[in-house]
Amino acid sequence: MTDLWHLFLSAAFVDNMPLTLFLGLCTFLALSKRSESALGLGIAMTGVLGVTVPLNWLIYQGLLAPGAWAWAGMPALDLSYLSLIAFIGVIAATVQVLEMLLDRFFPGVHAAFGVFLPLLTVQCAILGGSLFMVDRSYDFDESIVFGLGSGVGFAIAVVMLGAIRSRLAYADLPTGLRGLGIAFILTGMMSLGFASFAQMAMSQ
């Protein structure tokens, strides 16, 4: 239990997706202009990551990993090079299903952040979550916790950036820095802040 909790914390803070691994920056920067849209994106990310990482774990272990077809008499078959296409397919399908389910049962929620859902198909952070899961050979429980943790970490970071950026209305910036430039600098500073979590994890 403590191991899983530790994994959750390290996925959310130490290996924060946008700030230390540079994943999902496109949407991170594009949708953080206001904190409401940032919150919607964060929630959608957490949901999709929490579903797709374990789902991809099942597919990878059941169909693609070296030796997965041993029961069918083909122990040498290694389909892991197909994992990229499989993962993308699963993510696209999950996003689509999630969107339809939300639309059917929670139209309010769907209206609130429906625009962000289709975007998530091409989100590097989501594909990255699944690829890291394979890279670090997590087991099923760990992959659930890892997916949720990364999603929460993304949500925290994007909401923080959104809050800071909406405050920038009161700042008198050089014209060249306005918009994208200052967003990068702010992200850099937040990334410095999150770097201290890495120190914390090491000193434990």
Partner: peptide
């Protein structure tokens, strides 16, 4: 480390926009 990449890209954006002011948001 990660932060410097953000700072450098921010600086690069600034430099390019100082050169091509029509890109300023």
């Amino acid at each position: 480390l990660a932060p410097s990449a953000f700072f450098l890209l921010g600086g690069l954006v600034w430099a390019i926009r100082a050169w091509h002011p029509e890109q300023v948001e």
